[in-house]
Write a protein that binds this DNA or RNA. Structure first.
Lengths: 239, 239
DNA sequence: GTTGCCATCTTGTCAGGCAACTTGGTTATG
DNA sequence: CATAACCAAGTTGCCTGACAAGATGGCAAC
C-alpha cells in the first residue's frame, strides 16, 4: 500500500469536467448570462459521454453557477458569482489548515458573542444557564465535557439569530471537536484543572451576556478562545 | 432582459432524491461508515432510473457526505459531518438575509484587518498603498469607486494569508457589491462626500496596518464597516 | 403586417450493456 | 488440515441509443 492512503481518490470524469467548466466560467471564458454549449456539443468537444456532461453541469447547477431551462439550454448565472459558498476542508492532518480554521472560528465566535449580548432574550439566557450547569455537572462527574462545551458555544451563536453564524459555527465546531476530544483523552491528568479554567471563562462570558454588555462579552470571548487555543496547542504538541 | 422570474426552477428528480438522501443521512437513517444500498436498489425503491441515482449520489459525494469505492459501494462519510460547508444565499430580495450577510462580513473583515496588521509584509503594505491611490484616482475621476473599494478590502484579507478568510471575503464581497453599486448609481449627488469619508476611513485602517497596531486596526475597521453599513442603509431606504 | 403552426434543437429521463474493481467463498495444493 | 490461488457474483464507472417535454425560430396562412 502506498503511503498516500485516501488522499488521492480517483477523480471521476465528471469531477474533472466540472472543475474545468468552473474554471472556464471563473476566467470569463463564458460570460455571465451567456448560453454555454449544448450537452451533446460539450460531450464531443471534451471526449466524454453526455451523462458525464450532465453530471458535471448538474454540479455547477447545484452550486448556483449555472441555471438550465429545459428546451433552451444552460446559462451561466448572472452576477458572475455563485449563490453558494463552498468551504472545502481537505484533511485534518494539515497543521496550517487547522490553524487557519481555528482563526476563522475565533473570528466568528467572538463576533457572535458580541451580537448575542446585544440581542439575547430571557429564553436565550435560560438556555445558556442550563448549559453552564451541565458543564459543571460534567466536571464533577469527571467527564470530558467536550459535548457540553460545544453546546454552550452553540447556545451563544443561537442567541445571535443569524443563520449564517449558526451554520458556520456548527460546521467549524464539528471540524475542531475531534481534535479537542482526542487531545483531551491523551492527557487525562490535566483535565480537571483546565476544565475549571474553561468553566470560569464561560462564566465571564455568561455574565457579560446577562448584563447585555457587548464589549465585555467580546473581550471575554476573545480571552476564552485565546486561552483555549493555547491549551489546544499544548495538547497537540504531545501528539 | 427576460422578465421571466427564475424563482421557481423545476426541481429535477436528482435534486429531490439528493435532498432526500441527505435528509436520511442527517437524521441518522444511515449511520456513518455504513454502506448505503446499491444504485440499482435505490433506483427501484425510489422509482427512478439509475443515472438519476448516480447523479444524486454524485452530488452527495461532491459535498463530502459520502465516499464511494468502485466495486464495493457507497458509504456515508465518517464523523457525521460534511467536509465542505455550503452557504446558500437564496435571494437578494430578502432584507433579513442581507443584514445577516453584512453582519457576517463585518465579523470576517474586522478580524481579518486585525490579523493583517499582525502579519503584513512590506509587499502587502505596498499593495495596500497602491489600492489607496487607485481609490483616490477614482474619486478624482468621478468614478463610482466600488471596484477600488473592494480591491482595497481584498488586499487586506490577502495580507492575512488565511485562505478561508480570503475565500469567504471574496464571496461575501461579490454578494454585497451589487447593492452598493446599484445604490450608489441612484444617489450620484451624495457620492463625492461619502467617498471622501470612505477614503479617510481607509487611510486610518492603512495607517494602523502600517504601524502593525492590531488593536487600532480592528477598531478602524469596525468604525469603517459600521459607517459603511449606515451609508448603505440610507441608500437602501431610497430603493 | 400579424398570427398561428410546425420543424428543430435542447434538456430531462429512461433502458441496456460493457469494463474495472472488490469481495467472499471455493477449490486446489502443500 | 491449513494455506494460497482462483473464480464468480456484486457494484461502481462509463458508454450508446432512444424517447418525452419544453422552447425557439422560421414559414405559411390570413
Amino acid at each position: 500500500m502506498s503511503a498516500t492512503s485516501h488522499l488521492d481518490r480517483a477523480p471521476s470524469l465528471a469531477d474533472v469536467l466540472a472543475q474545468r467548466l468552473e474554471q472556464d466560467i471563473a476566467q470569463g471564458h463564458y460570460a455571465p448570462g451567456e448560453k454555454l454549449p449544448s450537452e451533446q456539443q460539450l460531450a464531443t468537444t471534451y471526449g466524454v459521454s453526455r451523462p458525464i456532461v450532465r453530471e458535471a453541469i448538474g454540479r455547477l447547477k447545484h452550486d448556483g453557477l449555472v441555471t438550465s431551462r429545459q428546451g433552451s439550454g444552460a446559462f451561466v448565472a448572472e452576477s458572475g458569482g455563485a449563490s453558494v459558498f463552498r468551504l472545502d476542508v481537505s484533511n485534518f492532518k494539515d497543521r496550517e489548515e487547522i490553524e487557519s480554521l481555528i482563526e476563522l472560528l475565533m473570528a466568528i465566535e467572538s463576533s457572535a458573542t458580541e451580537l448575542a449580548a446585544q440581542r439575547r432574550t430571557e429564553q436565550d439566557l435560560i438556555a445558556l444557564g442550563h448549559q453552564l450547569e451541565a458543564m459543571q455537572a460534567a466536571i464533577e462527574r469527571g467527564d470530558s465535557g467536550v459535548d457540553e462545551d460545544v453546546a454552550f458555544h452553540r447556545a451563544i451563536v443561537e442567541a445571535t439569530k443569524n443563520p449564517f453564524f449558526m451554520d458556520l459555527s456548527t460546521f467549524l465546531d464539528r471540524r475542531v471537536r475531534h481534535f479537542i476530544r482526542t487531545a483531551r483523552a491523551n492527557t487525562a491528568k490535566l483535565q480537571t484543572g483546565h476544565m475549571m479554567a474553561v468553566q470560569d471563562e464561560h462564566r465571564d462570558i455568561f455574565n457579560a451576556i446577562r448584563d447585555k454588555d457587548a464589549q465585555r462579552a467580546r473581550q471575554a470571548a476573545e480571552n476564552h478562545l485565546k486561552r483555549a487555543a493555547q491549551r489546544l496547542a499544548i495538547y497537540m504538541k504531545r501528539v
